[in-house]
């Protein structure tokens, strides 16, 4: 172990541990690991004040590869472990690394409640739409009808969509990015890290062993311009390759329109991350391939007091209004009587 000194600007590689990375060759997780390290060095945070907490699954090996404090906990419980870490020491930068099964299946409850409490932690959900570590069963984000080892005739489970769930749980920061677009990945991670409050990031991540090509529509050179839409705050929702297209609101529903002729950018739906009301973010989270391009970027970013901030505030207020915190005082509370 080497000691950090505050004056040294850490490089991305300084955030790597001495452990061999054991994800399958070609796994999307490598790109995410590399961008997380890069972003941490950009942010100028220290290794000793950073904690990575994970659950179980391929993604949850993540903490071992970071030279920070790390906790590889149990299946689905990472948000709860992270809550304990953050409440015990709010000064720490806490990251949760989870997957679609870990966060939304076995850990669904903890995922919801960590989000609604608005702890200042970052949750990165590596969504590969499959159970990888257990070798290829369908996950809660696998498409309906998905044929896997545990669903040879096609899955009859309807999927759920992580961003919709997070928005429903009152998340204050919600974003989506994709493993192969490393620049965008870094941008979103940095935004997430800088947000004060819960930051939820869904990362489309290719499992090249059990679900290869699941996001090919969003990454292929020929298709990505028509299947993804990169969000920019206060800008119209535009996308498209050769033909420039946009999203327009028709009543309560989004529709794809081609720009040019009668339709100008002013007719389109404009993005606004900071709307207090989450309906726009939710609407965006419901745009799925192939009917719509899938939005990438920051869906929602609003301010709200954090859980641990308010908890500590209550303690500070109590200490101020009731300064005598001696054990004598505690023990002598209530009705006492003396026996001579």
């Amino acid at each position: 172990m080497c000691a950090d000194t505050a004056t040294v600007q850490l490089k991305a590689k300084d955030f790597g541990s001495d452990q061999d990375v054991r994800w399958c060759p070609g796994c999307g997780d490598y790109a995410i690991l590399s961008q997380v390290k890069k972003v941490l060095s950009t942010l100028g945070v220290s290794r000793e004040n950073t904690v990575f907490v994970s659950g179980i699954g391929c993604s949850s090996r993540f903490p071992y590869y970071m030279n920070t404090y790390g906790f590889h906990s149990i299946h689905g419980r990472a948000p709860a472990v992270a809550t304990g870490v953050k409440v015990a020491n709010p000064e720490l930068d806490v990251w949760v690394v989870t997957g679609d099964g870990d966060a939304l299946s076995i850990g669904g409850n903890h995922f919801l409640h960590a989000i609604r409490r608005n702890l200042n932690i970052n949750i990165l959900l590596f969504n590969n739409r499959i159970y990888g570590l257990t070798k290829g069963q369908y996950s809660p984000t696998s498409p309906f009808g998905k044929r896997t080892k545990s669903s040879p005739f096609g899955s009859v489970d309807y999927p759920l969509y992580p961003l919709s769930v997070a928005i429903g749980a009152e998340a204050t920061f919600v974003a989506r990015t994709i493993d192969v677009n490393v620049k965008h990945l870094a941008y979103v991670l940095e935004r997430a890290a800088r947000h004060k409050g819960i930051s939820f990031v869904e990362i489309y991540q290719n499992c090249n062993i059990f679900n290869d090509g699941s996001f090919l529509y969003a990454t292929g050179k020929d298709t990505k311009n028509d299947t993804t839409l990169y969000l920019e705050d206060n800008k119209p929702l535009v996308f498209g390759g050769d033909t420039k297209k946009g999203i327009r609101l028709n009543g309560m529903n989004p529709e794809i329109v081609e720009l040019g002729g009668d339709v100008t950018e002013d007719d389109l739906l404009f993005h606004d991350e900071k709307l207090a009301e989450p309906s726009l973010a939710y609407l965006l989270s419901r745009m799925h391939h192939p009917e719509f391009p899938e939005p990438m970027g920051v869906f929602r970013c609003v301010e709200r007091p954090t859980y641990e901030g308010m908890l500590v505030q209550q303690i500070d207020d109590a200490k101020k209004s009731d300064a005598d915190a001696s054990l004598e005082r505690l023990f002598n509370g209530g009705d006492t009587w003396d026996v001579k």
Partner: peptide, 8 residues
Amino acid sequence: TGLQHRIG
């Protein structure tokens, strides 16, 4: 400082 480690 310097005691970063991973448990689980």
